[in-house]
């Protein structure tokens, strides 16, 4: 019980500590791909510490919601990230929420972020909130189709069970899983406000979604939101890894060496995911906001196709 609790605590610490590193790593790779030196990979930690030390400037008419939202957003994202298998499956509290509930927890974070964007009453916050909710309303159906495909293959929406099932040789290579993987990557890109849906580096107001919502934040509040964004990126990479490349995950009750191996595997997966993300973002241009529905529609269609292919292949 104590060991289980420690492992669960370890997972919470690991996701929290690695999240800024992943963000810094992606930035570094992107800079290198553009033949820039780029900031150090630990720059996000420095930024967070700097923000935490600064005083917070609040707009005159900001309400209590504006001050509470960063903590709520951080807490919900952190809880969601702690429930995705990173280096081990079958954690003490992994049955608290299944995949649908994890997605919905991220939805709660988004709800408060969008509200915070509207609190001060500037047009930027509004534009960000309105676009964010529009993108979410397109991403969620695609996500449900992916969940559906996974549940069809693994017979569960419980992430630990799914990743344990995916290591079985009986699963093998399936076209449906490939389609679901592509769809999940597309959803992840949209949810994390990455290129081509949104640009995390821009402050050009007409193209931004996520940055527009947090424009009024400063100091410790901004730090909480930044770390929540990093956590969300890590969560999605961990999710894709846990479902589609579940190798190296330590099972419940296994020794510490297995857990150390799992941790090493997780860091390696994060590195590969970060490089792929940076490559993809460098190779592609941001699309207009009203092209996003087509992008997400493609993800939805891929998810649906995955489900249908499974049905067809089962009955043949």
């Amino acid at each position: 019980m104590t060991i289980d609790l420690l492992i669960q605590g370890g997972q919470m610490a690991v996701v929290l500590l690695l999240a800024p590193l992943l963000t810094g790593f992606v930035r570094k790779i992107k800079a290198r791909l553009l033949r820039r030196r780029g900031p150090s990979v630990i720059q996000p930690y420095r930024d967070l510490l700097r923000l935490l030390r600064k005083e917070a400037v609040l707009a005159d008419n900001a309400s209590w919601l504006f001050r509470a939202a960063p903590y709520l957003i951080f807490a919900t994202t952190w809880v969601a990230a702690a429930l995705v298998p990173t280096f081990a499956t079958g954690l003490l509290f992994s049955w608290t929420a299944d995949l649908i509930a994890i997605i919905a927890l991220l939805g709660s974070a988004r709800f408060f972020l969008a509200l915070a964007g509207m609190d001060v009453g500037t047009s930027f916050g509004g534009i960000g909130a309105s676009r964010e909710t529009m993108i979410a309303s397109l991403a969620e159906p695609a996500m449900i189709m992916i969940v559906f495909t996974l549940a069809l293959v693994a017979g569960s929406t419980q992430l630990s069970t799914v990743s344990a099932h995916m290591t079985l040789p009986a699963v093998g290579l399936r076209v449906s899983l490939g389609l679901a993987a592509i769809a999940l990557v597309m959803v992840a890109i949209a949810e994390n406000a990455r290129i081509p849906v949104d640009n995390p580096a821009t402050h050009l107001e007409l193209t931004m979604v996520h940055e527009a919502m947090v424009l009024e934040y400063s100091g410790r509040h901004l730090a909480m939101i930044e770390i929540a964004a990093s956590l969300k990126l890590l969560l999605y990479v961990a999710l894709i890894a846990a479902v589609f490349v579940p190798w190296g995950l330590a099972g419940p009750g296994e020794g510490l060496d297995r857990h150390a191996l799992g941790l090493a595997a997780f860091v390696a997966k994060l590195a590969v995911g970060g490089v792929l993300l940076a490559l993809f973002e460098t190779a592609i241009a941001k699309m207009r906001v009203f092209r996003v529905p087509e992008f997400m529609g493609a993800a939805l269609m891929l998810g649906l196709l995955g489900t249908l292919l499974l049905f067809v292949s089962r009955s043949l």
Binding site: L72, F74, T96, A97, A101, Q158, T161
Partner: peptide, 19 residues
């Protein structure tokens, strides 16, 4: 248990505690 579980109480407590 292996199919799907959800625990609203723990989710609420975790969020409250983390906040």
């Amino acid at each position: 248990e292996s199919r799907s579980t959800y625990n609203g109480l723990l989710v609420f407590l975790f969020i409250a505690a983390s906040t």
